[in-house]
Design a protein around this nucleic acid. Structure first.
Lengths: 244, 244
DNA sequence: CAGTGGTCTAGACCACAGA
DNA sequence: CTGTGGTCTAGACCACTGC
């Protein structure tokens, strides 16, 4: 009859396992994790659930699995770089690393897509779409770090409180219970520092900038924001993990 | 007795589905795919297998699934940018886009890790490790595109044929039947163009370069190469897709 | 409410690595 | 040969969306 034995859900399992990896509870001196049968018993889940969790950990770079050998933990590089995969927002990511991200200057204006300085990297957008245009200058541990130029679809995100403008726009959207985040397209490039932003960075116009363009979508597939972040090349480095 | 009915494996299914998405065979005018039961029947696979495939397509950005609504196709941006997720090597990726990647100048030398110009972004390496040091200048459709500086572990990859040096080092390793590719750590950054490489690019020293550092591992977790690719900022843009 | 994708169970067989 | 992870089946129930 396949009665539900009420085991823990995958998301919980993933959290627990990340924690147990960090504390070393399930990693031996050779970075090896217990075998799947052992983990199944330890967490009281079926193999399917366990492997769902292992798969997520593996995508995030916490572990890798070697066929016929075993499962191994991996050092995460989040401490030195910004992970492009952990979509938690810059503020949260930096807070986790014990670094302080502050917004020193910001502006918000109402525009239509036709008047925006740029458009989403992928996809199209109706020129009549009403947008919030937000510009933010942000410092990391007191040093100029990034200039953010972003557009949010007004009809979707509604009013943006000042606390979000100073802090985390990402958290503002994520915590809105009527919206479910879906996915992002990201385009990374380098470009010379523009004159109008040179004052903020300790750099001459024309200096290298690392640029990240994000198009953000809800889980329904609806675009809700697109943005361009320019990082001081000396401070901004992105990290990611790929399976071949 | 759960007899095997010999349906197709996931990898095959993924290929077929990508194809059927490109040709429009399983996408309607609203970009919607058939429901899971319909796809199960179409491809004659169980739900598990189907969802494994859908999951991979979704990670690669071909589709997204909206709970309670349906599955939808997405435009891929591979035609305009280099995808950091499709790990097939630059040569193959460009060939697929109908662009010509040529190596105009290259060198290969024997060094030890102690003498290497840089080390893996993550992890450590024994200074005594024997390496191939490879430098390549590569053009895209006749224009200066990227300078590649990479190190391959000699004891793992063995001798590197000249054809691989001129063409695809990635394919050379991938086609070696005794080696199984595993994963990569990637660190992206921007930096000023160094004087010694300015001659190759049509740029002055100090111009922005987009830089990709790769540490490549076998499926056993063994490092086999680490490299640094510098792209002309006007031509090199990276694309990726993330689920939030 | 009906229909969609999301999670979970229990069990079988396959393929690779190493002693 | 044994133990590891990889694939697959068949079926159940859960959770969200829109009518």
């Amino acid at each position: 009859m396949a009665k539900r034995e009420s085991s823990i859900p995958v998301a919980t399992l993933v959290e627990r396992m990340i924690n147990d990896i960090h504390t070393g509870a399930i990693i031996d001196e050779k970075n090896k994790l217990p075998t799947e049968p052992e983990l199944m018993e330890r967490y009281a889940v079926t193999r399917y659930t366990l492997r769902q969790a292992l798969s997520r950990l593996s995508v995030l770079g916490y572990i890798y699995q070697a066929h016929g050998i075993g499962t191994f933990g991996r050092p995460r590089q989040d401490d030195n770089y910004v992970s492009v995969q952990n979509a938690v927002g810059l503020s949260t990511e930096m807070a986790r690393q014990g670094k302080q991200l502050t917004t020193t200057d910001y502006s918000i204006d109402e525009v239509t897509a036709a008047d925006a300085a740029f458009t989403p990297s992928a996809g199209k957008i109706d020129p009549a779409t009403r947008l919030w245009e937000i510009k933010r200058y942000r410092m990391l541990d007191g040093k100029p770090y990034t200039f953010e130029h972003s557009y949010y679809l007004r009809d979707i995100v509604g009013d943006v409180p000042e606390s979000a403008l100073k802090g985390s726009l990402f958290a503002f959207v994520a915590e809105n219970k009527t919206l479910t985040l879906g996915f992002q397209d990201k385009v990374m490039e380098a470009a010379p520092l523009a004159k109008e932003n040179a004052w903020f960075f300790d750099l001459a116009a024309g200096a290298p900038m690392l640029i990240m363009n994000d198009d953000s979508y809800l889980s329904s597939g609806q675009l809700f924001a697109f943005s361009k972040l320019s990082y001081d090349y000396r401070m901004g480095k992105f990290f990611m993990f790929t399976r071949l």
